Amino acid sequence: MVAVGSAVALSGCSQATVEQWTRWGLPEAASDRAPFIGNLWSGAWIASMIIGVLVWGLIVYAIIKFRRKSHDETPKQTQYHVPMEVLYTLVPFLIIGVLFFFTVQAQNGVLAKTEAENPHQIDVIGQKWSWSFNYREAANPAVGSDAHTVGTIESIPTLYLPLNKPVRFNLQSADVIHSFWVPDFYFKLDVIPGHPNSFDVTPTKPGDFLGKCAELCGTYHAQMVFNVKVLPEAEYNAAIKELAASGQTGDLVAPSFPTTGPKKEG
């Protein structure tokens, strides 16, 4: 009945919507780390549905089996039921243990460093209330210099990424805790003042995406968004060269004490 009802409900939806439902609401994956989180997400939903059906079945069974048959009938009273008490004590621990095991596996997968020798490196600074990006491309012969982009509330920054090439993000905060998130990558990581974080990812889908802050960080948290452009490597190199040619060179650094934005060294 559930399968038939689902098929009828989805028959009036677009193909894109149907595909999203098959991913349990997740967008189409756009990074090499997405399968770890995607599999964990799907597995959790499937496990939850199985547990839910079991619990609903037991509730219906109890309603039918032990329903009151007459006004004079009094249900049998018991002080305790050891097998039942053991069951509802151990089962939650079993569920938690299984979820913990697969969560750790997914975490290890998304946080694993790339085996590539020289990944593209981008330093990300979160500040109230936007993002700044340092492109470390001085050693890249196709670019030849570092470049940066500074975002503001009035000017949404664009993050350029090379398609099918590993990128190492180095995260720092200029003030409070932020969280760097590209939903299509199925991954986010906190940006904590005084505690640099780092992760590697390889974009696997070209196009434009939206990034945002996933941590309630202050007054204009909702405006901490940025655009993401995943381009073939040649186009990525050209975009970074254009930034450098426009004068956006030099290092942006997160200050030692809270402020409202990064500062340019020198």
Rank of each mutant, 00 (worst) to 15 (best):
Trp24Met: 15
Trp24Phe: 09
Gly25Asp: 10
Gly25Cys: 04
Gly25His: 05
Leu26Glu: 10
Leu26Cys: 06
Leu26Ser: 04
Leu26Lys: 03
Pro27Tyr: 02
Ala29Cys: 03
Ala29Ile: 00
Ala29Tyr: 00
Ala30Val: 00
Ala30Gln: 06
Ala30Tyr: 00
Arg33Gln: 12
Ala34His: 05
Pro35Cys: 14
Phe36Gln: 15
Phe36Trp: 13
Ile37Phe: 11
Asn39His: 15
Asn39Leu: 13
Asn39Val: 08
Asn39Lys: 15
Asn39Gly: 13
Leu40Val: 04
Leu40Pro: 00
Trp41Gly: 15
Gly43Ile: 06
Gly43Tyr: 07
Ala44Thr: 07
Trp45Ile: 04
Trp45Thr: 08
Trp45Glu: 02
Trp45Asp: 11
Ile46Lys: 08
Ile46Ala: 14
Ile46Asp: 03
Ser48Ala: 15
Met49Lys: 05
Met49Tyr: 04
Met49Phe: 08
Ile50Phe: 04
Ile50Pro: 01
Ile50Cys: 05
Ile51Tyr: 02
Gly52Pro: 00
Val53Cys: 10
Val53Trp: 12
Leu54Phe: 06
Val55Ile: 14
Val55Glu: 04
Val55Gln: 09
Trp56Arg: 10
Gly57Val: 04
Leu58Asn: 15
Ile59Arg: 12
Ile59Asn: 14
Val60Gly: 09
Tyr61Ser: 08
Tyr61Lys: 07
Ala62Cys: 13
Ala62Glu: 14
Ala62Asn: 12
Ala62Gly: 14
Ile63Val: 10
Ile63Thr: 04
Ile63Pro: 00
Ile63Gln: 13
Ile64Lys: 09
